[in-house]
């Protein structure tokens, strides 16, 4: 079980969180024309990276905040966590 540092609550066990996918995905703006390809990329196409990447988790059984977690998908090492409104540098 992973040990995730919620930026609001501190170190908590994985079973308090739910996984929310790739954090680098940006939702296209509302009311803007978008090609089929770009839309499909947003809805469906994910890289499924092996290694270090940023992903979303929600502290479901805690503060209910969505957070960004930098994790290595192969080793499960967690490097950093950010609040929802903090930009990935």
């Amino acid at each position: 079980m992973l040990h995730i540092k919620c930026p609001h609550c501190g170190m908590r066990s994985q079973n308090e969180f739910s996984y929310g996918g790739d954090a680098s995905v940006k939702r296209p703006e509302l009311n803007k024309e978008i090609s089929d390809q770009d839309w499909d990329n947003f809805v469906y196409n994910r890289k499924s990276l092996r290694g270090k990447h940023w992903e979303l988790w929600q502290h479901l059984s805690g503060c209910r905040q969505w957070i960004k977690v930098e994790r290595d998908t192969a080793t499960h090492e967690i490097f950093d966590t950010l609040k929802a409104n903090e930009e990935i540098s």
Partner: peptide, 13 residues
């Protein structure tokens, strides 16, 4: 609820 929180916190803060 999670769905609404997702959009409010991440997409349209």
């Amino acid at each position: 609820l999670s769905h609404l929180e997702y959009y409010l916190q991440l997409v349209w803060p």
